[in-house]
Design a protein around this nucleic acid. Sequence first.
DNA 1: TTCTAAATAGGAATTATTCCTATTTTTATT
DNA 2: AATAAAAATAGGAATAATTCCTATTTAGAA
Lengths: 127, 127
Amino acid sequence: MEKNSKQRQEILDFLIESYSHPTAEEVYNEIKKRGSTASKGTVYRNLNFLSEKGIIEKISMQNGPDRYDYLKTPHNHAICVKCNTVYDFEYDFSPKKLKKAITEKTDIEEFSNYIIVQGICKKCLGK
Amino acid sequence: MEKNSKQRQEILDFLIESYSHPTAEEVYNEIKKRGSTASKGTVYRNLNFLSEKGIIEKISMQNGPDRYDYLKTPHNHAICVKCNTVYDFEYDFSPKKLKKAITEKTDIEEFSNYIIVQGICKKCLGK
DNA sequence: TTCTAAATAGGAATTATTCCTATTTTTATT
DNA sequence: AATAAAAATAGGAATAATTCCTATTTAGAA
């Protein structure tokens, strides 16, 4: 049976109050600053654990380390592939139609109700 | 000025005829098998080069190495986060509405017209 | 043909993440 | 409150994926 460790709670608490889609490293640094005894291995293990439970979302980036997000309300992510900023946005993707398209064309049976869009943000466009 | 090397062409040629969303490692092995002199560094450099030019798409996975795809026709990707299979599917995401939602809520100005959906496929559901 | 920028080969280095194992903690049970 | 067992941790080693480095080669313009 699953146990609720202090470290796991500290990690989740930080994500719940964070709006910055932090990396594992950033989660580690921040909770350490607050006095947590968690090791880096523990941070990674719990971020994976919480992702697999569907409690948080793991965002795989084109560049750089993965990022993590607690979805207070359902939303999608638009990622700048230049500066790696992750923006939140809401959009109704007509779940029924989308589900139909996916189940007709693929073997994916269960999927998240958020999507990922990749692009380039304002401040990176000129570069 | 940009030069069209034999190695770059071999990498692109393989992706054009491939339907399997290969990893860099797989691209490397396959072109080597066909007699290419390309080194692994060259494969990575060119996959990034071609992605940045928008000629191919880099697919960042939740687990395991990145995958690459040449988009013969526009399509989206549904990824099984258990077995890492990448499925293609077509779907009309009402580009105008989507664009409105994204530009209103984020600083993303230019974005790809494909999306990524993550889920679990049939054969992984029971596990 | 010559010149120069661009690209490569091959290996070292780095980054991100997972794995390992002895120790500690949580929770259920007494 | 003490005990036991499973779960989780700490901390560092190991691995995986990718980038970086530099001497050499190549493509293509002049």
